[in-house]
Amino acid sequence: MIRRRMAFLVLALLAASTAVSCRSRAREVVVYLSIDQVFTEPILRDFERRSGVKVRAVFDTEETKSTGVLNRIVAEAANPQADVFWSGDPVRPLLLVKRGLVRPYASPNAAAVPPGFKAADGSWTGGAARARLLLVNTNRVKPDERPRSIRELASPRWRGQTAIANPLFGTTTMHVAALANAWGEDALKAFLVQLKANGCRIASSNGEVKRLVASGEVAFGLADTDDAAEALREGAPVEVVYPDQDGMGTLLMPTVVVPLRGPHPEEARRLVDHLLSTAAEQELVDAASHIPLRADVNPPLGGKRASELRAMPVDYSRVADTMERLQPWLREWAGL
């Protein structure tokens, strides 16, 4: 009896091991993403259907958005696994460019992307963008009290009623770095100290900010376009405010496609071409309410084009440097 069980166990183990090792690895491409899985997976599946190339993806978690997979690419530098990085912001890929982990490719589909949103050598190319916006709970904030600037996050009027995501992770990192460049680092630090003193909640992620605003736990918070779209889709009592339209402008963050030094260069180029196509950008715009960069892509229902917004002027390369420099201070500020 025991021998029969042992034989069964050995057979089961062999079958399981075979299942692990025999997964087809022919014609595949490995992509790491820091854009939400819920929006990007259908686009990747579409590529699989059209090209016959299997896509193997690693998605970031909400908490480590943009840095989890980025650091995995850095950690794997000695033996690169990823062929393409599809980033939710344009700054972190510059850290990969600086480390020499990119294999530049100028896709023909990048021609329609405005020059400010791509590198001439093809090391990165921008796509549909997100805006950093204020998500407002309409049950808690009267129409005539709607905030107009991100500075109101630190206003005593809203003491203990606002939220931002932890600036150590995700798009908030880039946002505070951009603010530091716009205002000066001392002014930014003073703002963040004031924010904390004002009882602003430091959420684990933008998704968490959305949840806090949608449930009415806070009156308003700083989030991204896709978080707002999701809250609106769920029927939450929220409204979107593009901040500082009468001042420095709203921060826009294009998504970015970065070809890496992975083991499947040919498939990687095909995937980059697909991700930079009009169809893929339209799909992302429609699904995630992103803001189109290209003229041949329509904005989502009720959404805006980049040209219709007063955008905050940003030098992504400078923001990347500031972002690295600010980290120790931000960790101290966050208590980590």
């Binding site: 997964r23 193997r56 958005k65």
Partner: peptide, 25 residues
């Protein structure tokens, strides 16, 4: 697992965690 799962072969806990970002509740 979340730190080192091979691309495209994530376990269910990881899928829940990554979809939690803006995935339908």
């Amino acid at each position: 697992a979340v730190l080192l799962y091979p691309a495209g072969e994530e376990p269910l806990t990881v899928r829940i965690f990554t979809l939690e970002a803006n995935g339908p509740e």
